[in-house]
Amino acid sequence: MVQAQPPMSEPLLTLNAMHTHIGQFHILQGVDMVVPRGGVSALLGRNGAGKTTTLRTIMGLWPASQGSIRFDGKEIGKLTTPAIAQSGIAYVPESMAIFSALTVKENLYLAAREGEMDSVRLEWIFGFFPALKKFWNYPAGNLSGGQKQMVAIARAIVEPRKLLLIDEPTKGLAPAIVHNLIAAFRELKTTDTTILLVEQNFSFVSALADHVAVMDDGRIVHAGAMRDLAEDQKLQQRLLGLSLDSHQ
């Protein structure tokens, strides 16, 4: 079901000349990026390009040393991580960071800041992650890698959020689970939620994303429609070092 979307001309997130230092290392060197409202935007790039740092800087986990981060019309660059989360951004880190000593239910309960979890929304989540219902009262640390990823994503969407930042959700997952994730993200695309996805799996991204930005050496080196990049193998080769075989 498609929800009414605000005009795509109003970006949900705008990064402007964003720099991030970690210790003595200058990781992000002036990131300019726009994430339109609605749909899936992908952030690609080789290892070490600065994709994870970009997500962490948006979340305030590493402070931006320069530049601005505007989200939903407000500057969030100087806010604390909890304030950024409360403004409507959910984060699924690469490590998943589920609370392994807590049950699946407790993991999701903590993410529901409004109080009680919405049973209708939970059933909707169970619809594409049925394993979560089965393991509802099970310690999350005892789940498989794919199930942990389901918990991490479910935690991010247990309440409606304007923007999901998801870091490499397919890493280490079996192909069957990746297919489940594609279905789940397609379902999420039908809601008001915007997704910014960092991925190495080009097939996964090209199946989902509407927009793409490519990073290299802490900067955005390409931005445009995903369809254009997916159809242009020379551009893929130049930006990502991908050969045709790598995403067959």
């Binding site: 929800q3 049973s119 939970l122 909707w124 393991f135 509802w136 409606p160």
Partner: peptide, 24 residues
């Protein structure tokens, strides 16, 4: 179905079926 389309109610117990043993 979009989750916000219907009225929210608090979650009660969700009984799992054929749940594997939790290793203690």
């Amino acid at each position: 179905m979009h989750p916000s389309a219907t009225t929210a109610t608090p979650v009660t117990a969700t009984a799992p079926d054929a749940l594997p043993q939790v290793p203690h």
